[in-house]
Amino acid sequence: MSRHLDIDLLRTFVAIAETRTLGRAADQVGRTQAAVSMQVKKLEEMLNQPLLNRTGRGVTLTLHGERLLGHARTILRHHDAAVADVSGAGLSGTLRFGCPDDYAAAFLPHILRSFAGLHPQVFVEVYCAPTPRLQEQLAKHALDLALISTADTGAAAAILRREPLVWVGNRHDDAASREPLQLALSDPDTLDHRWACERLEAAGRPYRVAYASGAMSGLLAVVRSGQAIAVLTQAAVPDDLQVLPTSRQLPRLPTVGLTIRFDLPRPPALVLEFAEQLRRIVPAL
């Protein structure tokens, strides 16, 4: 039996993996559920491996199915980009973009609106999370590209934008003066968490990480309650909160750089075009 991977079979398989049911996948690819089931069977026979576990609630991927999913997504991205480029039909397809949670509100509306105006046939899936989680998703090829926060080492060519980290508190309380200082920080492996702790320890200021989470909404809720202060990039500070002045007890924090990372060494045309749009827009926001 031929071992060539058929594009239609792969597209159906990805639809099943994303919807977790044969019925919804059939609607997505425009086939009957029976036809979708036959396509899966054909793909399993060709690879000589089970790809799906069928349950009462739908389907889950087997270990072999999980392995195929990453390859299938990569093949489809390259296929769709090649068809659009050679046919002159313009860019189309799906692009998976990661953005640090603290930049989402400030940057994403401008980025997505401008790109949609140039390429209306492209669907952009957005995943917001702290930088270490974005890097994990890139390593698994679950994202095509991501904006990444990095230490500002002065490599101007690689950094799109520099953002100072700042202490942030409620406008109507004195959380910054409490002893020990109560902090609401992102995940322990993020730059803001590490640098906040390092600077306070160097200054000899007692502190306690009262709340740690990768969810920006949770951090902001704690700060708004007046129970703790947070560390954010300056662009991410909401209007109802305030940047706290630095002092000997609240030391100045470093600046982070914002750069682009890809999941592939040679990204397809669609991904490169989105990256170019990021390079044009992000520095000016």
Rank of each mutant, 00 (worst) to 15 (best):
A203L: 07
G56Y: 09
H71R: 11
T153D: 14
I75P: 00
D101N: 07
L147R: 02
D6F: 09
A221Y: 00
T259Y: 09
P188Q: 09
R261K: 12
A212R: 06
G90A: 02
F123G: 06
E276K: 06
A221H: 06
S186P: 04
A275Y: 03
E276D: 15
R11V: 03
L138M: 12
V59D: 03
P100S: 02
A17P: 00
G90C: 07
T62R: 06
G117K: 11
R280T: 10
V29M: 13
A155S: 07
A25N: 04
L270T: 11
P206Y: 14
A157I: 14
E163C: 10
V209T: 14
L232Q: 01
L258M: 10
G88Y: 05
A158E: 15
G117A: 13
G65Q: 00
A235G: 01
E44C: 03
Q182G: 12
R20G: 02
P132I: 07
V222A: 09
L250T: 06
L272Q: 11
L47S: 03
Q39R: 14
L52C: 02
G65W: 02
V243P: 06
L69F: 08
H172N: 11
P206R: 08
M216E: 01
T60R: 13
N170F: 06
A215T: 06
P132G: 09
T74A: 00
G70A: 11
R57G: 00
V86H: 10
A235W: 01
G169Q: 05
L165R: 03
R57Y: 10
V166N: 02
M46N: 08
E276F: 10
E136T: 15
C197D: 04
A203G: 01
D189F: 11
R24Y: 05
V223F: 01
L185K: 01
G226K: 04
V271S: 08
